[in-house]
Design a protein around this nucleic acid. Sequence first.
RNA 1: GCGGGUGUAGCUCAGUUGGUUAGAGCGCCAGUUUGUGGUACUGGAAGUCGCCGGUUCAAUCCCGGUCACUCGCCCCA
Length: 415
Amino acid sequence: MSKLQPARGTRDIYGDDARHMTMVVDTFKRVAASYGFEEMVTPIFEFTEVYKRPLGEASDIVSKEMYSFEDRGGEEITLRPEFTAGVCRAFISNGLQQNLPCRFMSHGPAFRYERPQKGRYRQFHQINAELLGSDAPESDVDMLSLAWRILSELGISDDVVLHFNTLGDVQSRTQYRDALVAYFSKHKDTLSEDSKRRLTTNPLRILDSKDASDKEIVANAPLISGSLTDEARSFFDTVRRGLDVIGIPYHHDERLVRGLDYYTHTAFEFVTSALGAQGTVLAGGRYDGLIEQLGGPVTPGIGWAGGIERLAMLSQAGAAPARSVVMMPMGDAATLKAFALAEGLRRNNFTVTQDRSGNLKKRLNRANKASARFAVVIGDNELENGVVALKDLDTGTQQEISFDRLASAIQESNK
RNA sequence: GCGGGUGUAGCUCAGUUGGUUAGAGCGCCAGUUUGUGGUACUGGAAGUCGCCGGUUCAAUCCCGGUCACUCGCCCCA
């Protein structure tokens, strides 16, 4: 590597990108808190088994996308490829089943060894919400409501469509899987190579194949609604009624499935067409068997994860950095005085930086480029008289202010 | 993992049908103003033409490989 560059699929995040992503996370935390969610910060790596079991040995994530390694103590370790399994492990490890339901929010990086594309990185970032311990369909509505609220506050709810389906309970899902395998096996000869493989690894996934001839076959494939038990059907209807009451528009997509084995009942994706092939910005569903599968007490759960990069690309919203006051001391004595003045201003919640190099012209130039709001010039003349020259960089006006009145003068001009 | 496109200054891009000193705009630096910005004018710095190899008298240009980005597939947030 002759040029110093970040490892493939990783990138440095700064400037506007960083501001947009921070806005996504801040909005997420604020809104999730208003739904009663509390932070759960789990380790960024876990024993490999934590992800291997729930995700399914055959899943692509486990079979070829995980960053797994043996650490120096001989333990099999994996960088988290998603949040749910880790949060559930934490739930079990800490015996949190005493106070159900639990509502956890998390955010941070996750890792998958994939071919990078726009909006798809090997180190990517997610916001994640999990609600553990409620098997009521109303909880599914709560989770969708939370997601919708966040998308709305990010200003992108008009740009996404909620695709929504049910996978039924375990019995429904098993029946459906069998029905699909039976149906697709009849058409095996005309299925694409990818889908022939899926027939054994993940038959549900054939339903969203993009292959033209697959699509023809899929058009007549049996639907999950034909395999639903009465309970599963009634569960689904309750969730739908909830969405109607809250006023979340959705598209009932009978072919929407999940890639991961642990999902049951509600499955959903908020999708945009603005990001090319990586259109899913937030997705999740119910996973009633997961915690038990990990060795914990039987506990239902529902959760979702949102891609921070993708959400940030869509929303393009970010808090502008606070406009600063720049101290411009001329000479050693003034430099010392500027320290004291700056501290005083910061105690009054102003953002203050120091610029001590170059002539005044240069400093004002820099301040201008940095969108600073005020310049405070202190030289020997000012020191003698106990004043500073306070320059309003927006209006260009300048006035002499005594040391002790500086904060209030800035406050006044900034109105 | 598979297929297509791209890679020239900090950024956005021209260009060379293979031939001496590779260009523009923006940005950056300096000056016109010994302590007063945004405008204007003048001047300047900055590129191993992604990297390695091959063909050739000669490669930034052609060929091969490689790395990265990008679009689609796969997968998925």
